[in-house]
Design a protein around this nucleic acid. Structure first.
Lengths: 212, 212
DNA sequence: CTTTTCATGGTACAGCTGTACTATGAAAAA
DNA sequence: TTTTTCATAGTACAGCTGTACCATGAAAAG
């Protein structure tokens, strides 16, 4: 055998290059040559590790999903214990909104993929269904626990609240990406929503709906 | 002068053809030849009425926006008077979700355009900022009136509630388009949200969150 | 009737894209 | 050392895309 190369690493390197190009110029402008140039490799190398463009696109999507999942897990892991429901949802809110540059890039490309998947049946719609579904169940479970601990009004439906929060954050995310809302405004809105769900009406908390 | 032709009509015909192609196969697959074939005209005719592809794309977007605005106005106009806030929001909810085929097609293409606008600066992001902004102000005004009439808890912030409702409906719309949620489920969720905002908790209304 | 105007059609062309093919050189295996 | 294996590079090619150009015919204007 010859030079011995870590295939997974090479594929990740190229997939990341695709994500950068897509974030900068749009997913629809992605070409094999463009990705190769961004990755600093030859066109043939991209072909060698992915064969076809469709497979590259698919692999880059899977990588995006994996990285996103890992970021979320890492953020959860470094929450101060014990993890209060409110803290967990604050973490979610910080992760789900495109605030800083890298986060914005990720959400941009992810949204572009989702749009693609709406019409391209071969591009698996799985990530856009199973991913959110899993997150929704996870959040619903947290809410159920919060109810048992008395931190959430027992009259609320945990599943519905989880769905509403996820949907709201997603909608706010795209409104930020498109330039309708500032990240701060989105953050404030989602924060106010959490206040309402967790019943901060009477406590007079000085959270403020302004920036920061 | 020769044959006399209604330019606006020809342009609308071709723009509609673009929308159909985009709804069926994705906005990224749109080509001048494809649109021409869909419209049943020659390639040159598309060039003749739009000159460049960028202008065709732009014109089709403007037409989408105009048609959407007209649909919304028409739905508002045929509401039974006097228009109660709740009825108006029900109408909004019915218009904003991709339920039937045509509505799904519209939201699909609209979302694709929005995704494009996130990275293409020349494609005006205006429609995706000014449109929602105007709608948001409109809904906020309705909520303010509702507060004066005692139909809405005065402690609620009309602007924030309008933003939340719009964002929620948009998020639900994409979740339907991507296949995560059924139109009925989205409808039920938004309905429950309205119930909460308008305070239907204690009235015991039998609205039901099922498929109707 | 002539002439002009313009809607419509056909075709050509340069550029880019995905993909296939061939070559080379280095390192591991024999 | 010889052979094999594979990472990497270069190149070719057919297809499609946007755009420019030319042709034609009919209807309005003179």
């Amino acid at each position: 055998m010859p030079k011995r190369v870590d295939h997974a690493q090479r594929r990740a390197h190229i997939a990341d290059a695709l994500a950068r190009v897509a974030a900068r110029e749009g997913l629809h402008t992605v070409t094999l040559r463009g990705v190769a140039a961004e990755a600093g490799v030859s066109l043939n190398l991209v072909q060698h590790y992915f064969g076809t463009k469709a497979e590259l696109m698919h692999a880059a999507l899977l990588r995006l999903e994996r990285l996103s999942h890992e970021r979320w897990s890492a953020r959860l892991a470094q929450l101060p214990r014990p993890v209060t429901p409110r803290a967990l949802f604050e973490a979610f809110l910080a992760e789900a909104l495109p605030t800083d540059g890298p986060s914005r890039d990720f959400h941009l490309v992810w949204t572009a993929y989702a749009t693609l998947a709406m019409t391209d049946p071969e591009l698996a719609a799985q990530p856009f269904v199973e991913g959110p579904d899993r997150l929704e169940r996870q959040l619903a479970e947290v809410l159920r626990r919060a109810q048992r601990d008395g931190a959430l009004d027992p009259r609320r439906d945990p599943a519905a609240e989880a769905a509403r929060l996820l949907t709201l954050s997603h909608g706010l995310g795209t409104s930020v990406l498109v330039g309708q809302r500032s990240p701060d405004a989105a953050h404030a809105l989602l924060h106010a929503h959490l206040d309402e769900v967790f019943g901060a009406d009477e406590t007079g908390g000085a959270h403020g709906a302004s920036s920061e």
